[in-house]
Structure formats: structure tokens, C-alpha cells
Design a protein around this nucleic acid. Structure first.
Lengths: 251, 251
DNA sequence: CCAAGTTGTATAGTATAATAGACAACTCTT
DNA sequence: AAGAGTTGTCTATTATACTATACAACTTGG
């Protein structure tokens, strides 16, 4: 250790970013260590009291940091036992029948979907092309955040024909599922027609909704679903937290 | 604007990173806009009250954000007039006579140097080679933060022969200048022998000392200075905030 | 079963982030 | 010279981050 000048020589100085709370710095520090492989999957983290001592902070502060990591899906805690690393990813299988709730339920987790916003807007050239519309035609746009076991997995922007699915936003709020929303309109066997996958970094809005730092990667999944009669029923642009999901594409 | 669900629909939600203070989010937001060219050099920012209204926060919070930007050297404020963008960089000319204080003073700014730590350590192979020592020989290592007009410009790790400059840390604390410290030991006309320049991102420690975000670039300047008699007197590894300095190399 | 070690919860105190409002000091344009 | 608009400073209040301490609830290994 370097000899320090008297000024600002607190033991927690090395992580104190100005304007960033202590628990957040500790959480980010652990996220870094976990992502870099310093604690492997399933490993037990040191006890809260030990971490607190190591950072020179109160145990409550460490608890807040651990709660954050749990909210990010990086760890889980077991009362009386400890806090454990969980870096295994949800296997998200993309095929003709791709249903978020079914995939998550099959993996033994509780699926969740929440509508964060909606509006009717004129279709862009891109979206119109996908849905077989003319640019400027009205489409219904939904912003949906999906999660498994209360951990956000993806945010998706979904466009549907506005006339055919006019109250889809209301129906989605009730049913909390795109599958059930389409069923409400009599579309029961829609299937995935194509899927395009790329990668990017989370922007500020997505990062907030996914509980990610802005420098974490997302898998960008664009897709088109069609009805049994081959009519386009919805197209999406989803952003999946790459730390929490691995995509499997059937071929 | 998208129609929002009632949950968490505050007007400042789009920048509220969890565990990051409001003023910091606003400061980072402005830094981003400035760096991306949305406000050019010399331009006046909107009045504090207007910014406050725009973000839906109190004016004091905006003032804190502006103080942060000023501390980062990105803006300066003029009482009664406004806050102005300042993105021009200090021209740091590297030649045979390279003296931080002189360069900064010549640019019309007030130079400042502060010792953040020091110790005697065995020389690494690299450092020993530079100073003409054997690996393991004792060298004195200084950690110095330099600034202009109270804005950090560089952090530098400096190694000197430990025997010859034994109390250099103490002398530096008094003189606040490497030039004057060497003069104290009778070394008056040292000159730059070689300089090697590369680039990197600020690590957590350097970012804190330079008041940079960790994703901002730094210019890494490694160099060797020798006395008039051609004896190595010090070698450094400096990290310059690339947002605040441009290096000019004489040839 | 017990004891040691762990996470969960409760209470209370201190420091500070953010809000709110008022006014002083200053600049700039008219 | 005046007045509108700006930054600087002051006081006060509320919400919350962090600390401190204690104990309950639970797991694990002997």
C-alpha cells in the first residue's frame, strides 16, 4: 500500500465516485468481480459482515448492495446460509412457436410482462414493410418489459396493425401476455416467420428498465410473427440483457 | 411522447439511475451533450432556472450539477451572465525542456501539483532499465496529480533513484514542483530524453483523481529525463485527461 | 440438540441530497 | 439610468443514505 497524504485518506476512498452512492459502488464492484470470473457460478460470497468490514462500511450498506445485485439477477440469498452467485443464463429458444411465458415457465421460473407505454403512430418505412402496410399507415406500438422471477429479461417494442388490434394495450394490461391478447382477437396460432439478431449496448432508457449499467451488452432481436393464414400480426424489436439470456435458434 | 403507465411516471425518470444522485445524472447528461457537440465551445448554456424547469428539479440541484461540470473543466460560470462551454484543450508541448508549471503558466493558467502518495520500492525490470539500475534496486516512487486552474490535468507515477533523491517526497511537498525538487539536489538542467505516448481508458483510481468518468480516454505518456551529464534522474508514467489536453511533440 | 455463523428485521441517530423561497450581486440591453 | 435576466448566497425543511446496535429466524456441522 502506498503511503497516503492526510487529505481524503478514508479506507473506502478507492470506490467513492462523486455523486454515486456507496451501496451502488459496492454493487458495481461485485458485479465487475463476478463478471470477470473472480466468483464463479454457485459460489458463496463472503458474509455480509465480512464484506462490510472489508469495505469499512456498515452491514446495512452491504445489504443494500446485495439487494441491488439480486435485483440484477446476479446473486440470490438464502437466509441463514449465505449469498450465492448466479450467472447461468436463461436458455431462450427461438423457433416457430416462440412464447415468452412458455419459455420461462418451462425453465421453472415465473414469467412477468408489463406494459410501460403505448401509442398509435404512423408506420415507418421499415415497420410498414414488415407488416405489409404503406408507410404512414397507423400502427399500434407497445413498450413491454418482460422478466423472470422479478428480474428483467427483455424490453420489447412491438408494432401491431392499429385497426385490427385497436384496444390491444388495454387487453394486454389485463392479460399480461401477447399470446392471450392475440387470442382475444381470435388469433390463436400465430408463428414466428423470421428473426434477426444483433448486439448493442443498452441505452439509458433500456438500461434503467433492464436494471443494467449502460455499458452492458444487449441482444437485439427483431422479428415478425404471422397468423395461421400467413397474415403479419406483429413485429418486434426486443432488447435482451445479454448477461441473463442466451438465445438458441432452431434450424 | 409515449403514453405512460401510472407507475413511476415522474418527469425526471428518464435519467434517474438507481444509486446515482440527481445532480450527477444531470451533470453526466450535459457532459454527454457537450462532448457530442450539441453545445459548442464558448456557447452559453440555458439559465439555471430554465434547466431546472426542463428537468423538473430545483435550481440548487442544477447548480450542483454545474459545479461538477466546472470541476471537470467543461464549463465556467460568469456571475450575472451565464454558464459557458469550455472544450478547448490545453496545448501541452513536449520537447527537450518539458516542465508542467512552465507550460501551464505560459498558457495563462495557474499550475498546481499535489503529491498523493510515495514509497520506496524495488525497481521493476522496466523501470530499472530506464534508470540504468538493476531490477530490485531501490527507487523512490511518487504519485503526483497536476492541474491547471483547479482542474486536474494529469496523474503521474514518477520514479527516481532512491539513494540520490532520498527525501524528494518531502521536498516536493514543500516546493510543489519536480523542477524545484531536483534543483534542491543540484540538478538544474535536466532534459527530456525520450517520450512514448499511447492511449487508454481511465481506471477507477485515475478517474477519481482526474474527475473523469471511467469511460473517458487518457493519454498515457511515458518518459525519461536525464541530467546535463546525461544521467537518468527520473522516469514517469503520466495519464493525461484527453478531454483537457492535446499533446504537441516537437521534432 | 446445540452452538456458531448466517441472513432478516427493527429502532434510532447523524449527515446530506433535494426542495423551497427570498434576496443580493452582477451583466447586459434598452 | 433603469430594468430585466442572470449567478451567488442564505435560511429552512423534508427525505433518505449511512451508521450503530440489538435481536430474531434460519442453516449448518459437530
Amino acid at each position: 500500500m502506498l503511503t497516503r497524504t492526510p487529505r481524503g485518506s478514508s479506507s473506502k476512498n478507492h470506490l467513492l465516485a462523486r455523486g454515486v452512492m456507496l451501496w451502488r459502488c459496492i454493487a458495481d464492484d461485485f458485479e465487475q468481480m463476478i463478471l470477470v470470473g473472480k466468483h464463479e457460478n454457485g459460489a458463496r460470497l463472503p458474509a455480509e459482515s465480512e464484506i462490510a468490514a472489508r469495505y469499512g462500511v456498515n452491514r446495512h450498506t452491504v445489504r443494500r448492495a446485495m439487494a441491488e445485485l439480486a435485483a440484477r439477477g446476479l446473486v440470490y440469498t438464502e437466509r441463514g446460509s449465505g449469498t450465492y452467485v448466479k450467472t447461468d443464463k436463461l436458455d431462450y429458444r427461438i423457433g416457430q412457436r416462440t412464447r415468452f411465458s412458455e419459455i420461462v415457465a418451462a425453465a421453472g421460473h415465473e414469467a412477468e410482462g408489463r406494459l410501460h407505454g403505448h401509442r398509435i403512430e404512423p408506420a415507418s418505412e421499415e415497420i410498414a414493410g414488415r407488416l405489409g402496410f404503406k408507410p404512414g399507415d397507423n400502427v399500434l406500438r407497445l413498450e413491454i418489459v418482460r422478466g423472470a422471477d422479478r428480474v428483467p429479461i427483455s424490453v420489447a417494442t412491438t408494432w401491431l396493425p392499429a385497426d385490427r388490434f385497436h384496444d390491444a394495450a388495454k387487453i394486454f394490461r389485463q392479460t399480461r401476455s401477447i399470446t392471450r391478447t392475440l387470442a382475444h382477437y381470435g388469433v390463436n396460432n400465430y408463428r414466428r416467420k423470421w428473426t434477426r439478431i444483433s448486439a448493442a449496448f443498452a441505452d439509458a432508457v433500456d438500461a434503467g428498465r433492464l436494471r443494467l449499467s449502460v455499458h452492458r451488452p444487449v441482444l437485439v432481436v427483431e422479428s415478425l410473427d404471422v397468423s395461421a393464414e400467413d397474415e403479419p400480426v406483429l413485429t418486434t424489436r426486443g432488447r435482451f440483457a445479454a448477461d441473463r439470456v442466451a438465445l438458441t435458434v432452431e434450424s
